[in-house]
Design a protein around this nucleic acid. Sequence first.
DNA 1: TCGCTTCCGTGCGTTAGCGTACACAGCATG
DNA 2: CATGCTGTGTACGCTAACGCACGGAAGCGA
Lengths: 200, 200
Amino acid sequence: MALLHDPRQNHLLAALPRDEYERLAPHLERVELPLGASLVESGMMMRHVYFPTDCIVSLLCVMEAGDSTEIAVVGAEGIVGISLFMGGETTPSRAIVQSAGSAYRLKGQLLKDEFDRASALQFKLLRYTQALITQMAQTAVCNRHHSLDEQLCRWLLLSLDRLPTNELVMTQELIANMLGVRREGVTESAGKLQKAGLIA
Amino acid sequence: MALLHDPRQNHLLAALPRDEYERLAPHLERVELPLGASLVESGMMMRHVYFPTDCIVSLLCVMEAGDSTEIAVVGAEGIVGISLFMGGETTPSRAIVQSAGSAYRLKGQLLKDEFDRASALQFKLLRYTQALITQMAQTAVCNRHHSLDEQLCRWLLLSLDRLPTNELVMTQELIANMLGVRREGVTESAGKLQKAGLIA
DNA sequence: TCGCTTCCGTGCGTTAGCGTACACAGCATG
DNA sequence: CATGCTGTGTACGCTAACGCACGGAAGCGA
C-alpha cells in the first residue's frame, strides 16, 4: 500500500528499481503546489524537476500577444521539466498548476547525473517524453480539427484521468485560458454537456 | 567543403566527433526519396532512421476520419524516427516526403546501440528532439490562434529554411493536406501573398 | 447592510473558414 | 483531334467561433 505522501505515488518514481530509487529518495523534497503556481517560466533556466503525486500541471505555450494555449498536461504519471535532461537550457513553455496538490522535486543536477548513468530512470524518462510528444501531437490535431465541445470533453477527460476523485473544481475562465478559447464558448459547451449527464 | 552526396550534409551527422562518425559511416545507406514517399506509417514498427540531406519530410498526425495535420517538418537539421531511440516501439504519426531529395538511412538497432553508449550522438539527438518538441508546441499554438494566411506563411518559411534554393515546387492541394485546411483557402491566401511580393 | 469583486449566463453582430459547385487552363494519352 | 486528368481560380451559402456588452448571482470585507 502506498503511504500518505509517498513519492512513489508518482508513477515514474514507482517504476524505478530499488537501488536507483534509494539513491534519489533522500533528495526528494515534498512541496505543496497551490493552484496557479508557476513551476517553469518561459525562457527561464530551471533549477528543479517536479514529480507530481496528486496535482495536475499544465504546459502552456504563451504568445507575445499574451494569449496562451495548453499543449500538454502532466499528472502523477509524469514529470515537469523534461528540457533539463533533454539538453536545452531553457524551456519555451510555461508550466502552471492546474489543480492544487503536492509533488516531489529534485535538484536538476541530481536528475541529470542519474540520467547520464544510462540508468533505468533514463529509459523511463525518455519513454515518458515520447508519450508527452504524442500528447502534444494530439493537441495540435485537436486544435485544428475539433470543435470547441470536443476539445472541452478531451480536456475534462485528460484532467479527470489524473485526479483521484471524479470531481474537478475549476472556473470556466481558467479552462478557457488553458484551451485558448473564449470564456463564453466554454459556458455554452458546458451547458450542452450538462444537459446530457454531467455536473458543473 | 562538403562533397556531393556527403552524409555530413546532415547537420546531426556533421556534428559528431570523428570517431563516432567513422563508426556509423560504413552503415549509412544513401536513399533517394521521391515526393510522397512514406518513411513511417502510423502504428508501424520502423526498421530505419533517416538523416535527410536535401529533402524535406513532414510529420503528419492522421485521424480516423482520414484528414491529417502536419505537426512538424524535418530537413537536413534533423532525423526521422526519434521514437526508435526514445523507446516507443511504434510511432503515432506518419512521415512522408514533402520535397524529394536524398537521405541516409541507418538500421534502427545500430542507432540504438550508439545511442546507448551515452555518446555525443545521444546528446545531439536528445537536443534535437527537444527542438522538435518546441516546433510541435509552436504548431499547436498556431493551429489555435493564427489565421490561415499566417499559417501558410509559417509553413512556407519552415520549408524554405530547409531547401537550398528559394524555389518550392508544390501543389496547393498538397499544402492544404499538410496544414489540414481547405484547398481553396490556400488558393486565396496564396493570392494575397502574390499581390504583396511572392511568386507562385 | 452596502458595496465590491468574481464568476456564470445570454444575447447580438461580425467574420474566418468550411462545403459544394463549377469553369478554365495545361498536359498527356487514346 | 477528342478525351480525360490534374491543378487552379471564383462564387455562394452556412456555421462555429469571436468580440463585445450586458445582467444576475454568489461571496466577502468594511
